[in-house]
């Protein structure tokens, strides 16, 4: 399995789990399906990019940083969309998105086969 594919799978699974935790927020419980889909899409993008990066560079630290930064950025875009009452869930979306991105970045470094000639930068 290649690293982008591993990242894609990890991103979708973790995205779905992260999205499912919205169940604990009663205000958005009715939109759980959409949130899970959106979160899975977010995870998928992070997984693909982090997986592509992991093929080139073998470094857990850099993989985590890239995944976390990308997760934070995508979570920011999602959090920037206001709720029907005009409020924003900045912390509730961005913090977990940041860490989930980091986890996806880590997993892409650990799973899947690196490209031949990948550089090691531990």
């Amino acid at each position: 399995m290649s690293k982008p594919v591993a990242g894609l799978i990890a991103g979708i699974v973790l995205g779905l789990i992260d999205g499912a935790t919205a169940w604990f927020t009663p205000q958005v419980r009715s939109q759980l399906g959409e949130i899970m889909m959106g979160s899975a899409m977010k995870g998928m993008i992070v997984g693909l990019v982090a997986g592509w990066y992991a093929r080139k560079v073998q470094s857990e630290k850099k993989g985590i940083l890239l995944g976390a930064a990308l997760g934070l950025f995508l979570a920011f875009l999602v959090a920037a969309m206001p709720q029907p009452d005009g409020t924003h869930f900045w912390l509730q979306i961005m913090l977990p998105g940041f860490i989930t991105g980091g986890i996806i970045g880590f997993l892409t470094q650990r799973c899947g086969a690196p490209a031949q000639g990948a550089s090691s930068a531990q």
Binding site: F24, I99, F106, L107
Partner: peptide
């Protein structure tokens, strides 16, 4: 260890955000 630390951080954040409200 790194994965466990990240997972622990995720859970802490989730609990913190849950109780913040």
């Amino acid at each position: 260890r790194t994965l466990l630390l990240l997972m622990a951080a995720y859970l802490i954040v989730k609990f913190a955000v849950y109780f913040l409200r």
